[in-house]
Design a protein around this nucleic acid. Structure first.
Length: 254
DNA sequence: ATGGCGCAATGGTTGCGA
């Protein structure tokens, strides 16, 4: 079973990329973020034709998440039951005996801003929900755009980014505490090449210069981590015409 | 230090992302 996460930065623009990528990669469950579509505009038919069921929770202009699956999708929950939020950033479902959460963590904009405070409160509430889910589901995975680079090795220029948004101590602490519930970063279960990132700024040829951040993650429960055989970042779609600024992360499970 | 780029809503320009 292959599972993946990808922030598509507008599904309207990126639907061809998504379909092309799925045609070339045998993904069973894909969590996507930043669909930026209201539910009435979601391209269900095109995704069904590609062989996937899909559930989604969207809104106009910003945010929006979805889970695509080759296997039947059950027990769908939209948003965090422990947190009142007008922004559509979370959707959960059970697929193939695994409980999945697809997450689009708030960006936070700048340390100390209102949006940063929202990010912190949102992450604290997420932890409450994930803790409750882990009580129920031994096989659990939360995939998404966390907007947090866990460590300096996940940052192209740690000095430039020191203390900045995505890299601040409080954000990293939030991620550590989330993992403290009993989750592991699938990417770090394996030896990886250096300078592996999942996002690069559109500007200043950041991708070509590999000036990126690793902010998209697949976190697995202990039981699911035992089934994990590989985790890779697929840079290919970032090379295509009109790419998303993020690229997919894939985990292979036994 | 700032802006660069891209997307959305818009109908010129702004908000936001990361």
């Amino acid at each position: 079973m292959k599972i993946a996460t990808w922030n598509v930065n507008s599904l309207k623009v990126r639907l061809p990329h998504l379909l092309q990528w799925l045609a070339a990669n045998p993904i069973d469950v894909l969590c996507i973020q930043e669909t930026k579509l209201t539910d009435d505009k979601f391209p269900v038919a095109a995704i069904n034709e590609a062989g996937y069921e899909v559930v989604f929770s969207g809104q106009k202009t910003y945010n929006g998440v979805a889970i695509l699956s080759r296997l039947p999708i059950a027990d769908v929950v939209r948003n965090n039951p422990h947190y009142q939020d007008e922004q559509q950033r979370l959707i959960a479902a059970t697929i193939g005996g695994v409980r999945f959460i697809c997450a689009y963590v708030p960006n936070g904009q700048a340390v100390g801003s209102d949006k940063y405070a929202y990010k912190m409160g949102w992450l604290a509430a997420l932890r409450t929900w994930v803790g409750a889910e882990l009580e129920i589901h031994e096989q659990f995975a939360i995939l998404g755009d966390y907007n947090i680079a866990p460590e300096d090795r996940d940052v192209h220029d740690p000095e430039l980014w020191a203390g900045q948004i995505h890299c601040s101590d409080l954000e990293r602490e939030q991620l550590r505490e989330l993992c403290g519930l009993g989750l592991v970063d699938a990417f770090r279960l394996f030896e990886q090449p250096e300078k592996q990132y999942s996002w690069w700024d559109y500007r200043q040829m950041a991708f070509r210069r590999n000036r990126g951040l690793r902010i998209d993650h697949i976190l697995l429960s202990q039981a699911l981590a035992k089934r994990c055989e590989a985790c890779v970042i697929d840079r290919e779609p970032r090379k295509w015409e009109q790419p998303s600024d993020h690229t997919p992360v894939i985990a292979t499970l036994l």
